[in-house]
Amino acid sequence: MGQLQNFSKGFIRENPVFVLLLGLCPALGVTTSAFNGLGMGLATTFVLVSSNIVVSLIKNYIPSKVRIPSFIVVIASFVTIVDLVMEAYMPALFDSLGLFIPLIVVNCLVMGRAEAFASKNNTFSAIVDGLGMGLGFAFALTLLGGLREILGAGEFFGLSLFAGDGMLVFVLAPGAFIGLGYLVALNNIVKKKLD
């Protein structure tokens, strides 16, 4: 598989949210606006790329029976780094993402890529894979966040698009599930067209 394909698979064909249905908790929980979705997506991308790098570097020195706990420690460290750095330099985003930053640890996507890809491939491929998957995740979250923000509040990235309040339900919890449901269906159709 070429590196380009390795990179681009995360957007449509193997999109972590729309196709693999991984990392749904943050995908639903923080996407009340496009900005929050993008912020969460980029934070996850950082953790994904960093842990992919470290895992691919140390993979030969880790006995296979303790590989999962070791990977968890690596991932948890990077998550804590994101947590601290975001609180220091982006306090507003830190407040709105809240609990979901420490929960990047249990995002099946991060652990899944470390175990399924980074522990079997060289560092460069692991970086490309992490970037592709991470940005695919960010893409999905921004899309869902944008959809909910436009329909629910009539805004996009905080810019007012039309007057009025919009359909409040899309900003609330039910709108997250329903919005994601239709985006998954849409992605299924697009994927079929591509094949």
């Binding site: 140390i58 030969n60 020195y61 880790i62 006995p63 296979s64 029976k65 303790v66 706990p69 070791s70 420690v73 690596v74 948890a76 460290s77 804590t80 780094i81």
Partner: peptide, 24 residues
């Protein structure tokens, strides 16, 4: 790959945990 002997496993986890705590 390193063998999964008891010593290796303990050593690995200690080193990984120490490195992580130090970084954090």
């Amino acid at each position: 790959k390193k063998e999964s002997t008891f010593l290796n496993m303990v050593l690995t986890l200690v080193i990984v945990a120490a490195a992580a705590s130090f970084t954090l």
